[in-house]
Write a protein that binds this DNA or RNA. Sequence first.
DNA 1: CTCAGTGTTCAGTG
DNA 2: TCACTGAACACTGA
Length: 279
Amino acid sequence: MPELPEVEYGRKVAHGVAVGRTVARVWVADDDIVIHGCTPAELREALAGAVVVGTGRHGKHLWLELDRRPWPMFHFGMTGAFRTPSDEAIQLETGPSVASGAWPPRFAKIHLWFDDGAQLVMTNSRRLGRIRLRGDPSREAPVSKLGFDPLRTLPRPEQFRKLLARRGRAKLKGLLLDQSFAAGVGNWIADEVLYQAGLDPRRTVGSLDDAELTRLRSRLRGVIKTAVRLDARKERFPKSWLFAHRWGRQEGARTARGEAIEFLTVAGRTTAWVPAAQS
DNA sequence: CTCAGTGTTCAGTG
DNA sequence: TCACTGAACACTGA
């Protein structure tokens, strides 16, 4: 479920392992779905011998900055993660190979060795992730087509209002999931934000009054900041959140406050919400 | 065996 | 033009 906080954690892992180091060895999977728009050989050549000088992220995309172009960029899709040999840390991938701590992990798509012996692997079991090469990731598609990144550049209230003015007919859930509006929000963040803001996911943007609009913006920031601060470790998320109680679509599921959780399909996605708290 | 669920894109509809 | 729906993508795990 990599949404913005999980991807930001991936960036942090990559930053710690790679920045300031030279790529000593590269292995790339023979996978022409995940390796997208270039060949495995081109990806290897771009990386081999390069110095990693930084990392970047926008929404759910992240990339390594090298001392030469092009740069590799990564999207985890529904199941990807960055792994290191020692990380019992965050398990974005699930399954027996992860539990067993096998190294290199199953579903490895790219494996980097650095000059100090550190390693970094991107896994992607369901192959909806992508690895691309870009001359300037932040200024080219797909990143250039995305909206604001709520962690780095959440618009001021006035600008936020302007962005919403053009989307009056959109449902709130659909708006939040639209990557050209807010990059990095996925299904659980959208539901969490709407729960905390007390808004029905089926409401339209145009129906919001000023107070509701302020709550939406403020909870968007709050949920993402908290999840990022906790390194996307879900077991550490506040128990007051909808998050901990929504999984499994359990009949009779309730929040920590005892409110009934119900499920809908909105904007094509399973939506958990709390009728007693959202209107 | 079936099916839900993750994120994204695209074709078709209103 | 905008937004929605459903399908497709690939795969695991319940």
